[in-house]
Design a protein around this nucleic acid. Structure first.
Lengths: 99, 99
DNA sequence: TTGACAAGCCTCGTTTAACAAGGTATAGTG
DNA sequence: CACTATACCTTGTTAAACGAGGCTTGTCAA
């Protein structure tokens, strides 16, 4: 989930609530990320320096936008590679390549 | 992980320790399943009726073999489909298909 | 104007998967 | 005999995700 959030932020700055709907729509509603998951996650990413936050008024609403940092970009690369390794391994097992 | 174990058992009966090494070799050492994970998992699968167990002496050792049940086969199908849905959704997000 | 609903952010407590770190027993080998 | 590999097990811990709430502000209809 870290990877997916960081990936969204690599494209553009976003606010939390937006990420929920964006992930849902891009995944054809497969990801129904709960706010109880997202906000603690964002706070952790901010604390570790992977993202930075700023408030901005847009469309008559004050929102808390998040931006990807350099460190977050590196983490994104690592996590993406880990995902490819992991999903590749799952498929290797499923496809029955013995050995 | 349930899915992977059930998948192995769909091919042939296996004992716990064998699953650890089998998963490791098939995944090029990506999966290093710990016994502290595997055995409770197997007990749970047995309890819910997805696998059945029997002891057999082979190669001078008494081993606890597991066999996939009909119910386990159904669970395997469900989990495999869930995995395909999930990994497909991840890749949909990563590939940036907006909307 | 007021009430309801959506947008937007948050926290707390629970569940669960996986792990770490142990323990036990047996077979084979130097 | 000691040591290693095989084989099974348990207990306690950690971390991700969720459920179920709470709080505020803007919009829109009655």
């Amino acid at each position: 989930m870290d990877m997916l959030i960081l990936h969204l932020l690599a494209e553009r700055d976003m606010y939390g609530y937006e990420m929920v709907t964006e992930l849902a729509s891009r995944s054809s509603e497969v990801f129904q990320l709960k706010e109880g998951t997202l906000y603690p996650l964002l706070h952790r990413l901010e604390k570790e320096g992977s993202v930075s936050a700023y408030e901005e008024k847009k469309e008559g609403r004050v929102r808390r936008y998040y931006r990807l940092t350099r460190k977050g970009g590196e983490k994104l690369r690592e996590r993406t590679e880990a995902w490819e390794t992991y999903s590749g391994a799952v498929n290797a097992v499923l496809c029955g390549t013995p050995g």
